[in-house]
Each structure stands twice: as structure tokens, then as C-alpha cells.
Design a protein around this nucleic acid. Structure first.
Length: 220
DNA sequence: CACATGATCGCCT
DNA sequence: GGCGATCATGTGG
């Protein structure tokens, strides 16, 4: 009787092994996640996203994020108040995960923000693993999700439930401001002129197409 | 029930 | 820069 049944999703990449306790990391409190989505998108830069698999912790520091602003954001799955089974986690209290499948083969991981009933979230676009991990392993939202072994099975998970998925504060990160790549539609932020996409300076794992130039601004 | 599409990626030219 | 992979989901008949 072997135990080949998979009940916890794919394994994270071996190079992402780390020890959260040794680093003395603290989790964000619930109130943090209930705050302003754009502010949270910036504040999450540098944070460690951690996944416990077979008793071992794997983790990476977030280096690129993107805010999705709910009802009024034409790019958000919750646009116009849409509420379907897939999007339901977006309506949960801040601090839950919203993970979905795109293009029939890739997963995207979001951190839900704002209080219960307000469907906003921050997409995790790129991260960097511990020293020694391949530089571009987690470049792009789908690569990030795959590298850490996160699939739609984790959608609706509470990051503050002391479970296998957690998010640790790592202090204020030095952030650059990216222009949204959502062009040609009346998306939130793009039209109003405020940025929705953020990344840590000097990161080698950006998802593109935005890149830093030497002044710290982005180039399309 | 039928069908069009997507918060992407990697390989091709 | 272009394109195909591949399927759950959303929308419409």
C-alpha cells in the first residue's frame, strides 16, 4: 500500500528550500491585508511567500506585483461586481489567496485585499528564491506559481490560518513604479494615471515587458 | 449544450 | 515580433 495519492499539489522547486524560523520572519496581521490595495501591492515587495511541502518549507521574495481594483477595474475578474464560483475567493476577507488557471496550463497567484465583500487583489508577478536558486525560475506569475508549487487547489486558502501557505513581512522594500501594461482599455489606474504594477529595484527576475533603466523609471 | 476566450510562456523566424 | 499549447470558465442560445 504505497501512498502515491496526491493531496497537496505539486512540489516546489528544490532550490527554494529555506527556514522561516531561522530568519525570524513575522507574518502580516489581518488588518494589513484589509487596507488599500495599491499600498499593499507596494508593501508586498520583499515579502517571503512560503509553502510547506512534505514537512519542508520552500520560499521566495516577491519582486513584482500588480494591483487589481475590483468592481471598477475592467481588467479584474471581479469587474462590475461579477461573482462566480471561480472568483469567490476574491470576495473573502483580506489575507486569503485567489489562484486560477489561465490558458489551460498556467496558474496565477493573488493575495486578496480589503475586507470581506470587496473583491480586490494583488497579483504576484515575480519573485526571487534563496541564494543559489536559478535567477529566472520565478520570473512571471505562472513561473512563480509553478516554482512554489501553487495551483488552483490553494485558491481560497487563508494565509493566516497557520497552514502550509504563508506570507512573511521582510521590511519595506525599495520599490520602482511600473506603468500598467493594460493599454487601450479604460482600465482603472491606467486612465486615471496612477500606477498599478510595482517591482523591486535591481531585481533580475522581472516578468517584463517593463524594465528598469538607470533612472529607475520604466521603459515599455 | 456550443463555443470563444484568457491577469502566460517558450519556441520559432 | 509571432504563434501554438490546452482547458476551465463564462456567456449565450
Amino acid at each position: 500500500m504505497n501512498r502515491s495519492v496526491r493531496i497537496c499539489g505539486p512540489a516546489p522547486h528544490p532550490s527554494l528550500r529555506f527556514d522561516p524560523d531561522a530568519l525570524g520572519l513575522a507574518e502580516f496581521p489581518r488588518g494589513f491585508y484589509r487596507g488599500d490595495t495599491v499600498r499593499i501591492a507596494r508593501r508586498l515587495l520583499g515579502a517571503w511567500l512560503a509553502h510547506r511541502h512534505d514537512g519542508c518549507w520552500y520560499g521566495a521574495r516577491i519582486v513584482e506585483t500588480e494591483a487589481y481594483l475590483g468592481r471598477g477595474d475592467a481588467a479584474a475578474h471581479s469587474r462590475g461586481g461579477r461573482r462566480t464560483p471561480r472568483v469567490e475567493p476574491m470576495y473573502m476577507d483580506g489575507g486569503h489567496l485567489y489562484v486560477f488557471l489561465v490558458y489551460g496550463m498556467h496558474h496565477c497567484t493573488n493575495v486578496v485585499t480589503r475586507p470581506e465583500g470587496i473583491a480586490e487583489a494583488v497579483l504576484l508577478r515575480a519573485a526571487e528564491g534563496p541564494a543559489g536558486a536559478p535567477a529566472r525560475l520565478l520570473a512571471g506569475p505562472a513561473n512563480l506559481s509553478r516554482g512554489l508549487g501553487i495551483t488552483a487547489l490553494a485558491s481560497g486558502t487563508d494565509l493566516l490560518a497557520a497552514g502550509d501557505l504563508r506570507l512573511f513581512d521582510n521590511g519595506a522594500a525599495c520599490a520602482g513604479i511600473g506603468r500598467s501594461r493594460r493599454i487601450g482599455v479604460d482600465y482603472a489606474g491606467e486612465a486615471a494615471g496612477w500606477p498599478l504594477r510595482f517591482f523591486a529595484r535591481g531585481s533580475a527576475a522581472l516578468s517584463g515587458p517593463a524594465r528598469l533603466n538607470r533612472t529607475g523609471q520604466t521603459t515599455p
